[in-house]
C-alpha cells in the first residue's frame, strides 16, 4: 500500500523552480530516502508533504489525504524533524515534550508515561529537567526525534537527520531510526546528502538533482546500474571515445578526463581492457577499481560528485530559508 503518492509535483519560487515535476510513491512501513546535493529540492518537497508549503502544480497524497485539501488530517498523522531545530530553547526537555503532547491531543497520565519512555529511548532521561539551550547538537536532534514520535505518527519525516553531527553521534541516530521502524512499524521519509546515510538506512532511494528525480530504486538496484565493479582509467592522451569491449556493461568519460567502466568482475575484465587499449595504441597512466557506491551512481548519472556544492544554488536556498513571508 502506498502511504505517500506524489504525481507531477512542481514548486516554483518566483524565479527558481525548486521541485520540477517529480512523481514517486512510498510504501507503508518502508524507509524511503531522498538523496541529493544541497539545493536539490529535498527540503522543499518535505515542506510540501508536511503541508507547510502549497504546491504550484501536481498532487501529493499523504496518509490518504490530499495536501491541498486536508492539511489538518495529514498533520495529525505525521511527525517531523526539521533540518534546523524547532525546539523552544528556553524550556526544558520535558516541557518541550509536554507542550507538543498537549497540542497534539495527548493527555494526562498517558502523556507523562510516553514522555518518560521516549526520553529513555533517546537516552535523555537524565536531562529531562534541563533547559534545551545547554544541549549539544546530538542531544537536540535526539530530543527532536523523541518529540516527533510522541503522538505516534504513521509517517515520520526526517530532514537531514544527522547534518552537522560527529560520526559517533550519527551512528547513534541511525540506530534509533532503525529501532524506531522495527518497534513502531513506522514509515520513514528522510532526506540526506550523505551517501552512507542513505545506504545504511534506506530500503528505497530517490536520487534528486536540480528538482528532478533522476533515479529510483533500492541501493542494490541503483548500484547495479553501473555494474558490479567500477573501473577508472586515465590515458596519456585524452580520449573522447568510450571503450567498447566485451564484459564492459557501460562506459562514460568523466569531466576530469577519466574513463569510467562498469563491469561484472573487474579482475576478469581488466586484462581484456588492457589488451583493447594496447591494440588501439592508447597508453594507460592510471588504473583503479572498486565496488560501486551510491556516489558512483550519482557521478554516473550527473557527471559530478554529490559533495561538490555549487555555490550559487546553495546560496539561493539558504537565503530562501532566511526569508519569511506572510
Amino acid at each position: 500500500m502506498d502511504i505517500i503518492s506524489v504525481k507531477n509535483l512542481v514548486k516554483k519560487f518566483e524565479d527558481v523552480t525548486a521541485v520540477d515535476n517529480i512523481s514517486f510513491t512510498v510504501k507503508k512501513g518502508e524507509i524511503f530516502a531522498f538523496l541529493g546535493p544541497n539545493g536539490a529540492g529535498k527540503t522543499t518537497t518535505i515542506h510540501i508533504l508536511t503541508t507547510l508549503l502549497k504546491p504550484t502544480e501536481g498532487t501529493a497524497i499523504v496518509a490518504g489525504h490530499d495536501v491541498r485539501e486536508d492539511s489538518a488530517e495529514i498533520r495529525k498523522r505525521i511527525g517531523i524533524v526539521f533540518q534546523d531545530s524547532s525546539l523552544d530553547r528556553e524550556l526544558t526537555a520535558y516541557e518541550n515534550m509536554y507542550i507538543h503532547g498537549k497540542i497534539y491531543n495527548v493527555d494526562g497520565r498517558d502523556l507523562r508515561k510516553r514522555i518518560e519512555d521516549l526520553l529513555k529511548f533517546v537516552e535523555l532521561g537524565k536531562f529531562k529537567n534541563k533547559v534545551v539551550k545547554n544541549f549539544s547538537g546530538g542531544m537536540i536532534r535526539r530530543l527532536e526525534i523523541a518529540r516527533a514520535l510522541l503522538h505516534r505518527p504513521e509517517i515520520l519525516f526526517l530532514d537531514e537527520p544527522t547534518l552537522g553531527l560527529d560520526p559517533q553521534t550519527r551512528a547513534h541516530i541511525w540506530e534509533y531510526i532503525k529501532n524506531m521502524k522495527e518497534e513502531h512499524e513506522m514509515t520513514i521519509f528522510l532526506t540526506t546528502h550523505y551517501m552512507d546515510e542513505a545506504e545504511q538506512l534506506a530500503e528505497r532511494i530517490g536520487i534528486i538533482d536540480h528538482g528532478k528525480i533522476i533515479a529510483e530504486g533500492s541501493p542494490e538496484e541503483l548500484k547495479k546500474r553501473i555494474g558490479k565493479d567500477v573501473i577508472y582509467l586515465r590515458f596519456s592522451d585524452k580520449t573522447e571515445n568510450c571503450m567498447e569491449t566485451e564484459l564492459v556493461k557501460n562506459c562514460k568519460i568523466l569531466p576530469d578526463g577519466r574513463m569510467e567502466l562498469g563491469v561484472e568482475n573487474a579482475a576478469e575484465a581488466l586484462p581484456r581492457i588492457f589488451e583493447a587499449a594496447m591494440k588501439k595504441g592508447q597508453k594507460i597512466m592510471e588504473v583503479s577499481y572498486h565496488s560501486p557506491t551510491l556516489n558512483d551512481v550519482f557521478l554516473y548519472l550527473t557527471g559530478r560528485a554529490i559533495r561538490e556544492e555549487r555555490g550559487n544554488k546553495l546560496d539561493v536556498m539558504k537565503n530562501r530559508r532566511k526569508r519569511w513571508g506572510r
Binding site: 498533520r75 517531523i80 524547532s86
Partner: peptide, 10 residues
C-alpha cells in the same frame, strides 16, 4: 524554529 512546531501542528 519554534514557530514551525506550531505551524505544522494539527
Amino acid at each position: 524554529g519554534f514557530l514551525k512546531e506550531i505551524l505544522v501542528a494539527p
